[in-house]
Design a protein around this nucleic acid. Structure first.
Length: 671
DNA sequence: AGAGTGGGCCTTTTT
DNA sequence: GGCCCACTCT
């Protein structure tokens, strides 16, 4: 049996105090917690205590004697799982050891490591991230040796996106292409061939991409009666958070995991379904009662977050959507101020206004922590960032480059990968190419020689001179250096602890390489030291690699010594703000042509999704909401273009909004 | 031919 | 703010 996700090692503790569920929950939440058996759909509006309800449900089950290992709690992100388990621990004064909590991918990984052989892999399989998948796809494309001039083909990364969408939505490739990428319609048959080749090469490399973690998991259950029985026996309660953002493949998994016991409780809000672009299907939640006809529906409609004025804007707006569960959110909070619409001359003025207002609010006593600025698309924050820097207002922009996706991190991890999984051709290629004289061509040649042997690691180890590799002098020098590093890592006295292995790799060769290649080598080497320190908390390298592959964590956020300035305002896309709340909220770019996104306006489904995004944005605000938009936009062709307010504003009655007319002083200097 | 620079353009993102 | 592409210089 897999080791399920746990927060900490087990520690014995005294029996917890029995919880007072009545006092902690409202009537409806209480019903969910105590009557949540069978197929249950919990429609939880924003700010309705959804997470609270879920953790009390888990606590309730545990208190009633359900073993933690019989509970499967699936969340949208690793972070959400961690937070929930920590809160359950806080409630029960006891670690819910053995509870299966995490993302679909996380659970899939745990299960697949146990039964990799059934899929023709070994338990040390590598997990490919999107970049790796793209690289392998590019190689597959090359395998097909297509005449380059003949047909217009998507880039490897685009092919990756198409294949991924096909898997996650459980649709044929041709259908995905027709619907989402019509300009590549005639390439569909070639994409099928690329996909087949890709599957083959992944198996050869003992590798799975993210989608395989779900697909492989489903296949295990569908094709192996013993495993289906085993897991039906293991899990007696399945709880799924953020159900509105699940896709069809995930639905199939939920259904499978719920077979037998029939205890599937899903929590979500159809009005907050905002991930269709990556395969989420709002029909999962809308159709849940039809998929499981004995479903009990609970509605959490009491909002504890926003003022009535803010909630009214959200409620009125979302009513313009057709397909949804009817709901009537009510707030428990006293009246406040109406949301404020603020037109500005242009995006610069918009940035200046926001910066100025942030400072005013801070002077009036609102900490920067309690304020955030949201936007539809990342680039919309560029001017604001300049303005905040100019005015010395500390900020944190959520997202950005992920720590583990940076080149230098991936370079070093590639060494670990090939040690754990010597079939991993991407790891070989990547590490080989770090050496002088070895590029795409010679890396490929070396790998094809190694691949032909029984044990590539041993083969590499035994050919110090590269005698069998037929390399030119310069590449042979690179090979010898590579060989020395590899050899040092395989000596009996070589470190096994992953943190030390990383230090060894850096000391052996990556340091000089990084110094020569990166102008910011010092920072990157510091990152690697942080990585080593993080890795030192692991005993086994394969565990480390699996965790890293399935981990969110942005540069600066997770394991580096960097931490945000004490006081800071948050800048975030609306998508990344889901689930969060702030006292004062700014929403930028509320103009037609920016929000809703122009590509969505001709498609009812897409437009409704944009409106849900607006709904998510508005409901992040507790007390104050500023909706700003620039009146003009510059276009290289037509010059200055006048813009109208977003249709999401125009479709609201004037009376529920306040309107400001402001003039902001231009900053004195331009840069 | 290949690297270096500048301008235009931009959905959204987790694993 | 960053990426991609085009254009230019070596």
């Amino acid at each position: 049996m897999a080791t399920p996700y746990t927060l900490h090692p087990s520690v014995p503790s005294t029996p917890p105090p029995r919880l007072d569920y009545r006092a902690a929950l409202n009537a409806e939440q209480h019903r969910v917690v105590t009557e949540g058996d069978g197929h249950v759909l919990v429609l939880a509006g924003p700010g309705s205590g959804k997470t609270r309800t879920l953790i009390y449900r888990v606590a309730y089950l545990l208190e009633r004697g359900v073993p933690p290992s019989a509970i499967l709690l699936v969340t949208f992100t690793v972070k959400a799982a961690r937070e929930m388990l920590a809160r359950v621990e806080g409630l029960l004064q006891q670690r819910p050891d053995g509870l299966w909590g995490g993302t679909f991918h996380h659970i899939g990984n745990l299960i697949l490591r146990q039964h990799a052989d059934r899929l023709g892999l070994t338990p040390t399989f590598t997990i490919l991230d999107e970049e790796d998948a793209g690289d392998l796809l590019a190689a597959c494309l090359a395998d097909l040796k297509l005449p380059t001039t003949e047909r217009r083909l998507p880039q490897a990364t685009v092919i990756g996106a198409i294949l991924s969408l096909a898997v996650n939505t459980q649709r044929p490739i041709a259908q995905v292409v027709t619907a989402q990428y019509p300009y590549f319609a005639e390439a569909a048959p070639i994409l099928e061939r690329v996909a087949a080749r890709y599957t083959q090469r992944k198996r050869q490399a003992n590798a799975m991409d993210y989608d395989d973690l779900l697909l492989g998991w489903l296949r295990l259950l569908e094709r192996h009666d013993d495993l289906r029985a085993q897991y039906a026996d293991t899990f007696r309660y399945v709880l799924v958070d953020e159900y509105q953002d699940t896709n069809r493949l995930q639905f199939a998994l939920v259904r499978q995991m719920g077979q037998g016991h029939g205890n599937i409780l899903v929590v979500g809000d159809d009005a907050q379904s905002i991930y269709a672009f990556r395969g989420a299907d709002v029909n999962n939640i809308l159709e849940f009662p039809r998929q499981f006809p004995d479903t009990t529906i609970f509605k959490l409609e009491a909002n504890y977050r926003s003022t009535p004025e803010i909630l009214q804007v959200a409620n009125v707006s979302i009513q313009h959507n057709r397909r949804q569960f009817p709901k009537a959110l009510t707030t428990t909070r006293p009246a406040g101020a109406a949301p404020i619409v603020v037109p500005l001359v242009d995006t610069r003025q918009q940035a200046a206004f926001v910066a100025q207002r942030l400072l005013e609010l801070r002077d009036e006593g609102t900490a920067l922590e309690q304020m955030a600025v949201l936007f539809r698309a990342r680039y919309q924050a560029a001017e604001l960032e300049l303005e905040l820097t100019r005015r010395n207002i500390p900020y944190v922009i959520r997202g950005g480059v992920r720590f583990f996706e940076q080149t230098h991190i991936k370079d070093v991890l590639a060494y670990l990968k090939l040690l754990v999984n010597p079939a991993d051709e991407l790891a070989w290629g990547r590490t080989l190419r770090l050496h002088d004289g070895i590029g795409q061509v010679y890396a490929q040649r070396i790998w094809s020689r190694l691949q032909a042997t029984v044990d590539p690691l041993q083969a590499a180890f035994h050919d110090a001179a590269g005698a069998t590799l037929e390399l030119p002098a310069r590449a042979r020098g690179g090979w010898q250096r590579f060989h020395r590093t590899l050899g040092a890592l395989q000596l009996p006295e070589a470190p096994h602890q992953p943190g030390q292995v990383i230090l060894e790799i850096v000391a052996r060769g990556y340091r000089p390489y990084a110094e020569a290649r990166f102008h910011d080598a010092r920072d990157r080497l510091e990152d690697l030291a942080q990585l080593a320190a993080f890795a030192a908390t692991y005993r086994s390298t394969d565990q480390l690699l699996a965790d890293l592959s399935l981990r969110e964590g942005f540069k600066g956020e997770t394991i580096t010594g960097w931490s945000p300035p004490d006081e800071h305002v948050v800048l975030s896309t609306i998508h990344q703000a889901k689930g969060l709340e702030w006292k004062s909220l700014f929403l930028l770019g509320m103009s037609d042509g920016q929000f809703p996104h122009p590509k969505s306006i001709d498609d009812q489904e897409a437009l409704e999704e944009e409106r849900r995004l607006f709904y998510v944005a508005v409901t992040r605000a507790k007390d104050e909401l500023y909706l700003t938009y620039p009146l003009t936009r510059y276009s290289s062709q037509t010059g200055e273009v006048l813009m109208r307010p977003s249709r999401f504003l125009q479709e609201l009655p004037e009376t529920i909004l306040d309107h400001w007319s402001v003039q902001v002083a231009d900053p004195a200097f331009d840069d």
